[in-house]
Design a protein around this nucleic acid. Structure first.
Lengths: 172, 172
DNA sequence: TAATATGATTAAGCTTCTTAACTATTAAGT
DNA sequence: ACTTAATAGTTAAGAAGCTTAATCATATTA
């Protein structure tokens, strides 16, 4: 085997990053297939989950106490994408009756988003299939390692996204 | 707080999936910024790493013993994407002298890909910046948890990608 | 030899994402 | 109070990554 051109060292950090990138890509593609059965694209589905406040989503902020419903800008912030990216998808979801839009009570720039019964039904049908696949996926990873996984991933996401100013972080 | 519309249960598997998806997306975007400094898109960079055989990439197959260099179809398989997706990017990389292409010794359908000095230099400059960021990123995750992370992620990737026929898998 | 499979490419089109420009409304500064 | 800033949302134009289908050349197999 000729490895003379291989200047790279084995490095566990790089390895983890590449694994995360590949797995993320895979789930985004696989999500496509499942969501498509309910007539949604992956993004539409994720946005719908945000509006329905799925408790398993990594959430930056939950303003349910401040106002009922969800703002497009809050979804964009949670997803780490631009508002411009969310906007046309919201329009489609409204047009297809998965969600409704209301005027904010005091701030007329804002429009709050609310999931409809049809949207809820779509999420439920997707959820069933997902739950089945996911549970099988984690079958052979121990409970203990699953909880280490969650902690480490939350820590990584917090570090790379919203909180670059954090000086002290808990070790995991 | 009004949670009457929240029919979803807290579920660690869903939580992990969403975290993986978000983190994957983030790294793909962040990779963009770093790769761009070397004049590459994320995909170009990943493909270049495949051709240079970075040992940290999750690899399905390494055919270095079968033939020197890398085939476009091997890269597509490793990345889990179609050959059609890879093709124009290979052309660009050749045009920009990051890689070279040679005829396969015995099979004239095949074209083997080889990284050039310019390609190697680009990878080195990207690598430096990445190494610095990555090491900081994992600062507060213990060595032990890092190795659990690698094992679990490898297991997940193997399960979801190439090996759906596997009946028995090692517990991690 | 004929049918089939493999490797690579091209064309057309979809989804996700971006930045920039725009409107409307609210908040802040002086 | 009045001008300036920031915030919420939309739209337009375009880049990147992906797909399937069609095509061509070469290899394999039956």
């Amino acid at each position: 085997m000729n490895n003379s051109h291989n200047i790279f060292e084995k490095n566990i950090h790089d390895e983890i990053i590449f694994l995360l990138s590949d797995i993320g890509n895979f789930f985004n593609k696989k999500g496509d297939l499942i969501a498509k059965k309910a007539g949604l694209t992956t993004l539409q589905w994720i946005i719908l989950l945000n509006i329905a406040r799925d408790p398993n989503l990594p959430v930056v902020k939950d303003n349910d106490m401040v106002h009922p419903g969800v703002l497009a800008s809050e979804i964009a912030e949670n997803r780490g994408v631009s508002r411009a990216n969310i906007s046309p998808i919201i329009s489609t979801l409204i047009k297809n009756k998965y969600i409704t839009q209301k005027d904010h009570s005091t701030d007329r720039r804002r429009k709050t988003l609310h999931i409809s019964q049809k949207g809820m039904n779509a999420l439920k049908s997707i959820q069933e299939e997902r739950r089945f696949l996911n549970d099988r996926l984690f079958d052979s990873i121990s409970k203990n390692n699953q909880s280490i996984l969650v902690q480490s991933l939350q820590h990584l996401l917090n570090t790379v996204s919203g909180f670059p100013h954090e000086e002290k972080t808990d070790s995991v």
